[in-house]
Design a protein around this nucleic acid. Structure first.
Lengths: 339, 339
DNA sequence: AGCAAGGCATGAAACGTTTCACAAAGGAGT
DNA sequence: ACTCCTTTGTGAAACGTTTCATGCCTTGCT
């Protein structure tokens, strides 16, 4: 089942078989034919491990994302796969489920595999953790996260701006008690979106507005439901009339809880999500959301990775930032009368 | 950066370093300590390709699914990942996007990698295509699909039964003109669910019911929307009063189209989906759906794979079949008056 | 003291490729 | 007939592990 047996059967040397496989033009037609025949007869399949060992790196591109069940990341992955396909690489998708330990294990295995590059959406993007992550064998591109130290390429969307857009929209609609729902705080996306939300509130010239921050343990539908329950428990006087959720899954959870509880959306509670996943438009109340160029994000990240991996000379790290925009739907379409 | 340099620095032989890595107990404490120090100093990372070459197989488990953007498959993948984790393997997730060519390429690469096993949800499960797929280097377990020839293990849910449950429910509610929406027909899941639907209609003792089959090009929200438009174009006399969709994404698409068109669900059109994804409950009209044990499906498949890969003696292929059940929600909760 | 047994370390072989220096053979130009 | 290319094929080295036969040393037993 190895190249050697193919060579024996075709009556040529192993070097020639290898040439047929890798530079067919350098082999005479007759031999090429004969070798091909032997390969087919024997059902020979190239052993990639051996190739890799020789080449020093594998033909994989990897994406380590926070959660494959989140459509945001599957779209990013799809964009990356497109670029990988074009380069003849295969995309490996790994999900860390927002678990630092699992992420570490994934990166370790990928390092041992000498993958061509890693598209990483880090669970913890504190500077210390980042420098730790970047002591890696393979080039890394951060997705939806940035390294202040610029030791790596990154592709991100301006989450601060996204958060500002969302909350400014709610303020414009007359809301003055607004909840920010999302977490854990360790996620840079969450921190940035919150920062944007705070900025929007601070920019308000007229009367003051209050931002209640509800931290969740993750960005899932389930966590959203829990947060919904927490809002409902607040005293009516101080209860927020609008909520900006750190992603659409959380917003959908809040919406589910509201529906179950008889809280009307948007009249009693206006909602804005983040990511504009397909399901946002299909929700019970179509969801206002901040849209990011997900596909482009993945594609660009993969391309940067390929560029870095292919660079002969020293590579110049790039930080690409895209701008998000707001898609207004029913869930926030209700003007709040001024108090 | 190789084991050799570690050995040199620690003042031992390469064999000893390898032993520290693989059977630490067989090395004296002093040497173990010294080698570990050298590894840390040099930042040595094991080269997995070389290990694989020696071992003859890689430490990957792969899942090739129809579509990573479909929550059904991400849940299956999660179950599989659990089992893989437990066995110290890493799960590779590949998406064929229902494209035969892409599936072929993925399987080829995985074969070249000598992965430990492949969890496959085939794009085309015709017997010819299956036998072609199974001439593979690595053991394969079919997910959500079966091989009549029993040349492989498979883990499936009884889709015929699921289809029957769904349509019987609609018949019980008084519907007599029912649409089946799904495709392409090449997918076994679609064929089985349709077969179940037909069986339910055939079992009807009293008056006859009509089943209109609308084939789609894929199982996506987008295709669902298109199908919704096609239903709307049918003359009112023969227009179905209920639709059973081959999966939830399609049902959500139909629902979106209905909402946009002012068709009331469930009064004008009752809907039943399939898979009971999280978003089904969160939809504009909560969706009645056939629920499958997705997580268990993935887990079981991975375990079978590991068993087969670890089997020293000849392996006995197993066909595991789970039973689905119906989750009734608002989208079908309306009794149709008898004509 | 002699011997068996066990613990440890060693060095070389093997895994299946790719690559590269070299050689043989054929053709063209003089 | 000679040289000089070009085309095509060869065989061996190298990639970084793991494994295994071998042998040394220590220890405990008789």
């Amino acid at each position: 089942m190895s190249i050697k047996e193919v060579a024996a059967r075709a009556g040529v040397s192993v070097g020639t078989v290898s040439n047929v496989l890798n530079r067919p033009h350098a082999v005479s037609a007759a031999n090429r034919e004969r070798v091909q025949q032997a390969i087919d007869d024997l059902g020979f399949v190239r052993n990639e491990s051996a190739r890799q060992l020789r080449a020093g790196r594998s033909r994989f591109l990897a994406a380590v994302v926070l959660d494959v069940a989140n459509p945001f990341f599957t779209d990013v992955a799809r964009g990356a796969q497109e670029a990988a396909d074009a380069a003849g690489l295969v995309l490996l998708l790994c999900s860390s489920h927002e678990d630092v330990e699992r992420e570490r294990r994934h990166l370790e295995v990928l390092g041992e595999q000498r993958v061509t590059g890693i598209l990483l959406s880090p669970v913890d993007s504190s500077p210390e953790r980042l420098t730790e992550l970047l002591t890696n064998r393979s080039p890394v591109v951060l997705v939806d996260s940035q390294d202040p130290g610029r030791q790596t390429c990154s592709v991100a969307v301006d989450d601060v701006h996204g958060g500002r857009l969302a909350v400014r929209h709610l303020l414009d609609a007359g809301h003055r008690r607004i909840a920010f729902i999302g977490g854990p705080n360790r996620l840079q996306q969450v921190r940035d979106r919150l920062e944007g939300a705070r900025a929007a509130v601070a920019e308000l010239e007229e009367d003051a507005a209050a931002l209640t921050v509800l931290e969740t343990e993750g960005l899932t539908v389930e966590e959203g439901r829990r947060a919904g329950a927490r809002i409902a428990q607040l005293p009516a006087r101080s209860r927020p009339t609008a909520a900006f959720c750190a992603n659409d899954l959380v917003a959908l959870g809040v919406l589910q809880d509201a529906t179950a509880r008889g809280v009307r959306v948007p009249q009693d509670l206006a909602l804005v999500g983040y990511d504009d996943i397909d399901f946002a438009a299909a929700a019970a109340v179509p969801l206002t959301s901040v849209r990011q160029p997900r596909h482009l994000l993945g594609r660009t990240a993969a391309e940067l990775l390929l560029a870095e991996a292919g660079a002969s000379t020293a590579h110049e790290h790039q930080q690409v930032v895209f701008q998000p925009d707001l898609v207004v739907r029913l869930s926030s379409r209700h003007r709040r009368p001024r108090r």
